[in-house]
């Protein structure tokens, strides 16, 4: 049982990091990035290709992250421009549909060019005993990455000027504009950052399970569920929801069967929407 819960926490930290990227972009600009999982897969495949070309991991990872960040930057500067000109529901709908299109394009291109490519990062080392359970080193390093990224985000949003500017835009775009913050700059930066975070998730996850070309939609949906349960726009909510859902899904997979986990995740999201529409830690009006 302890082992199952610990596995759930390892998965949950990955889910949390996955949800954070999605939740930030939605909180800022109202764009629900339906290509978030595909961003992660794209990053993973770039890294996998570089590893195939016998680059070292220390070169491949930064290059992969920069690549996916640039893709995010490019999409924000081109496709998202007309979206931000709209207001309210229309903006949400157009943003969502455009990103669905982008996700489909990435999926199609990757499946066309590299149908059997996959990224799995093996980290050598003996299993480490935690609470009497020996944990594989890969999962621990992956969790470490997620934790460090989460802590970095926390510090960034709490103490840096740009981070505080970002939070102010999430709270009130007009108000932030009146304080001299340019929402467009903040949005573009955070969109690119979110893409990098997606790439980071891919790396952390590749240490426990291979990232395959066709896994994008699945990752996107997991990110959506995490973001909704945690509260759209809330960083700490995403991590909390990630850990909660990670534990719930590993426990249910262990006792019932893996096919049931996504149904339980769906049910969790549905219950959250019905009883607490703003999510666990959401604070939207």
């Amino acid at each position: 049982m302890t082992a199952v819960v610990l596995d759930g926490i390892v998965l949950g930290l990955q889910l949390g990091l996955l949800g954070v990227g999605l939740t930030l972009v939605y909180g800022l600009g109202g764009v629900l990035n339906l290509a978030h999982g595909q961003f992660a897969v794209l990053g993973a495949i770039v890294i996998a290709r570089m590893l195939d070309a016998s680059f070292s991991l220390w070169v491949a990872i930064p290059v992969g992250l920069v690549c996916i960040g640039l893709v995010g930057l490019l999409i924000d500067l081109t496709l998202m421009r007309p979206v931000y000109k709209l207001r309210g529901e229309e903006r949400v709908l157009l943003g969502l549909l455009l990103m669905l299109g982008v996700g489909t394009i990435i999926d199609g291109l990757l499946e066309w060019r590299y149908p059997i490519e996959a990224l799995s990062i093996r980290i050598s080392g003996d299993p480490v005993p935690i609470l009497g359970v020996s944990m594989r080193i890969g999962g621990l390093v992956g969790s470490g990455i997620a934790l460090v990224a989460g802590a970095a985000l926390f510090v960034f949003f709490r103490f840096s000027t740009f981070g505080r500017a970002t939070r102010s835009v999430i709270q009130d775009e007009e108000g932030a504009r009146l304080c001299g913050i340019n929402p467009a700059t903040v949005r573009t930066t955070i969109f690119a950052l979110s893409a990098v975070l997606a790439g980071l998730v891919a790396i952390a996850r590749a240490m426990t399970a291979p990232i395959v070309v066709t896994g994008g939609v699945r990752l996107t949906i997991l990110a959506l569920i995490v973001a909704v349960v945690g509260g759209l726009g809330s960083v700490s909510g995403a991590f909390l929801a990630g850990i909660l859902l990670g534990v719930v899904s590993t426990v249910s997979a262990f006792y019932i069967g893996s096919y049931i986990t996504s149904i339980i995740l769906l049910a969790t999201a549905a219950i959250t929407i019905v009883f607490r529409p703003s999510g666990l830690l959401g604070h939207r009006p």
Partner: peptide, 20 residues
């Protein structure tokens, strides 16, 4: 009155259907 939840719930349902 939010379109966003429809998208999220139905997408999650697609995944559940697939796994089922």
């Amino acid at each position: 009155l939010d379109t966003i939840f429809t998208g999220v719930v139905t997408l999650a349902f697609s995944l559940s259907y697939d796994n089922l």
